[in-house]
Each structure stands twice: as C-alpha cells, then as structure tokens.
Simulated assay, not measured.
Amino acid sequence: MHLHIKNMVCNRCKMVVKAELEKLGFKTLLVELGEVTLDQDVSAADKVRISEQLSHFGFELLEDKKMQIAEQLKTAIINLVHYNKEPLKINLSAYLSEQLKQEYISLSSIFSEIESQTIEKYFIAQKIEKVKEMLTYGELTLSEIAYQLNYSSVAHLSAQFKKVTGITPSVYKSGSTDSRKTLDEV
C-alpha cells in the first residue's frame, strides 16, 4: 500500500517517517520523499493512528488525489533544485510531466488550485532558497551559483533574488537578517 505524506522534504524526514511507522508495527518497503510503500494494506483506523503519530513531527497523511499531485510536484521540484548534482539544464514543464506521467497543463492547474501559486513561482522560491544556502556556505562565486542553477546571467540571478527577498545577494551574504527557510516553509 502507498501512503502519500506531506512535508517530507529531506533524508532526515524519510528516516523519521520510517522509524515512526515501524514503531506502530508497519513494515516499510520503500520510503521516498512524499511517499511510503508498506508491505500491507492499512485499515481506516490504522490510517488515523499513522496520521496522529506523524502529525507530531509536522507530517500530514494525504488522502485527496489533487493534494497528492501537488505534493508530488513539490517533491519533484525540491529534488531537482536541492538534490540534483548536475546544473539545472532542463525544461521544467517537460521534467515535471515526465516525473508525474501527466500533461503539464493539468499539473499546473491542480498545483495552482491547491497551493494558490504557480509552479513557476514555487520553483523560483526553491531556487532562491538554494542560492541562500550556497551563499551561506561560501564555496561558490555568484557566477558559479548562477551557472549551477541555470540563470542566464549573474544579473538575472541578482534581480530575481532581490525581487523575492527584497535584498541583493551581496547584502544577504554580508549577514543580513533575511534568514533561510526550511524547504517545507517555501
């Protein structure tokens, strides 16, 4: 049985969800961001137990199909921006359609309905959080960050950063008060 879980955004989340499900007596076959495969079907009462247990850690069991799709889209974008080792040289709509095996227009409509923002705005917000992370660690120049995240130029990255955060990347790097967000807050 597959369970869809909201707010699973990192490997630590996967470990927590797996541990909590095992505490409840369920054997996990696969734990991925946003989704868990169990070795058995679960009853409605079991779903309530699971939901209550996971809610203590900020996770939410998703039953609604549209909410599941929106969460899968967020997970795919987070994977692409934060965990992909290669520079982002991909068409977002084609990538998401391929990942979810659905037409982008349908995915876009569902995402906007559920999240009250466009996929593109969410993607940009995730990229800006990744820029903040990279600036914080100071291992790459702004030019290297722009290349890594597929910005056409440093000027484009800087303009988008300022539009989203209200400050420039250099002001942020110098220790401004605009702190990073956790991925589930973006």
Rank of each mutant, 00 (worst) to 15 (best):
L62W: 01
A159S: 13
L3A: 07
F123Y: 15
D64Q: 12
S116C: 09
K27Q: 14
L107C: 09
Y151K: 04
E20F: 02
K132L: 02
Y172A: 01
I105G: 10
K47L: 11
L24M: 08
E20V: 11
N84F: 11
G175T: 09
K23H: 12
G166A: 08
C13D: 08
K85N: 13
G34C: 06
Y172K: 03
K121L: 13
E129Q: 15
K14E: 13
H82E: 13
E129C: 05
E139N: 13
S112D: 11
A94N: 13
F123W: 14
V81M: 09
M15I: 11
I5H: 00
I105Q: 14
I119F: 03
A76D: 02
Q148E: 11
Y137L: 15
G166P: 02
L62S: 02
Q40I: 12
C13R: 01
A45P: 03
E71Y: 05
E185F: 09
N79W: 03
Q72Y: 02
V36T: 05
R180D: 01
A76M: 03
R49Y: 10
V36Y: 03
E22W: 08
L140P: 00
K23D: 14
K18H: 10
S153M: 15
A70R: 02
V9S: 02
V16K: 05
V36N: 01
T75A: 09
I77H: 00
I50D: 02
S170H: 13
S170R: 14
Y172L: 01
N84V: 08
G25R: 05
L54V: 10
